[in-house]
């Protein structure tokens, strides 16, 4: 049909843009980059993230004068799981430095976060490809100082920033009119959900084992009522209540600050053009697909959207 043809032509045009633009092009003319020295305490680093309303930051190892990977919510999830399995080591977290997080990762047998990076002058298409492979869903842009050949962390690209760039710069997104139910990109069979009374530690285990960044909360009729996100863990640690692991996920969500924008939902008839327009206007983390009764049908992550734009269904 003409909608199919338009969709395919639009996708090809968008892919051309991604191949012709570089990661450097996505950077604003003026921006800030917050970097944490690896000798900082995890607790202090958490204060810095919350104070600056960010959920991740690159690490700088001053002893080697090199980029030392990214601090992400996965690291905080590892710390909580470590405390849960070593209750006697609870006070260790008080003195834990950022450069010990890899030891915590190994202690709980978590899959290490790879620190694949790319050069700012590489294409956006390559950035998307690297990002879709990375567990952290973001990719650092690293260049070298031309005098000292030391690494420079120029910025960190996220899936959201890339999709927003596409929504802002590719007019072809208006022609993506096929309903998402026909694109085979909604995760529905594998969606793990929980109830409001599920212990928050069980939800955190789900996030970690499933390598997912959110767990939907449904009521007894399967209606979506809220979502626990990996970034919510930062508020849990900040409040020092991660040791009270009888806490329900509903109680843990009481920590959310009032500037949380809410969970975005859509139906199976939604078009990519509308979803990208929403991303252009709001800081969306993902879309939960619900039916007319509000019951959970599936989830559409930013990675799913990016993968479809890159390689199709």
């Amino acid at each position: 049909s003409s909608v199919d043809v338009e969709q395919e032509l639009a996708l090809n045009a968008i892919r051309q843009v991604l191949k012709s633009k570089t990661s450097y092009d996505v950077l604003p003319v003026s921006f800030r980059l917050i970097v944490l020295d690896t000798s900082l305490l995890v607790k202090k680093a958490l204060n810095v993230l919350l104070q600056n309303s960010i959920v991740s930051a690159p690490l700088w190892d001053a002893t080697t004068s090199r980029f030392a990977g990214l601090l992400t919510s996965d690291d905080f999830i590892n710390v909580i799981q470590y405390c849960f399995s070593n209750p006697d080591k609870f006070d260790l977290v008080e003195k834990l430095q950022l450069n010990r997080l890899r030891d915590i990762e190994r202690a709980i047998g978590a899959k290490p976060l790879e620190t694949t990076s790319i050069h700012p002058s590489s294409s956006l298409y390559e950035a998307c490809t690297v990002m879709l492979r990375s567990k952290s869903r973001r990719v650092p842009l690293i260049d070298k100082d031309e005098e000292t050949h030391r690494e420079i962390v120029v910025s960190v690209l996220t899936q959201y920033r890339l999709l927003k760039f596409i929504a802002l710069n590719c007019r072809e997104t208006h022609f993506l009119k096929k309903p998402i139910s026909e694109l085979n990109i909604i995760s529905n069979s594998t969606v793990r959900s929980c109830s409001m009374t599920t212990p928050v530690i069980d939800v955190i285990q789900l996030l970690s084992e499933g390598n997912i960044s959110s767990v939907p909360i449904v009521n007894e009729n399967g209606v979506l009522v809220n979502v626990y996100e990996a970034v919510d863990v930062l508020g849990l640690i900040k409040g020092g209540i991660y040791n009270d692991l009888s806490l329900s996920v509903g109680e843990a969500l009481m920590r959310r600050s009032d500037d949380f924008e809410g969970v975005y939902t859509c139906t199976e008839n939604e078009k990519l053009s509308t979803l990208l327009d929403t991303i252009r206007k709001s800081s969306v983390h993902r879309f939960f697909v619900v039916n007319e009764s509000g019951q959970l049908v599936g989830v559409l992550s930013l990675g799913d959207l990016l993968r479809y734009i890159l390689v199709g269904s």
Binding site: L253, G262, Y264, T265, C266
Partner: peptide, 19 residues
């Protein structure tokens, strides 16, 4: 568009519901 924000996910409403 069918895109919406889930009302019960807004922090103030969630806290009221929990109480």
């Amino acid at each position: 568009s069918g895109v919406a924000i889930l009302p019960t996910s807004l922090p103030q409403l969630h806290r009221a519901n929990m109480l």
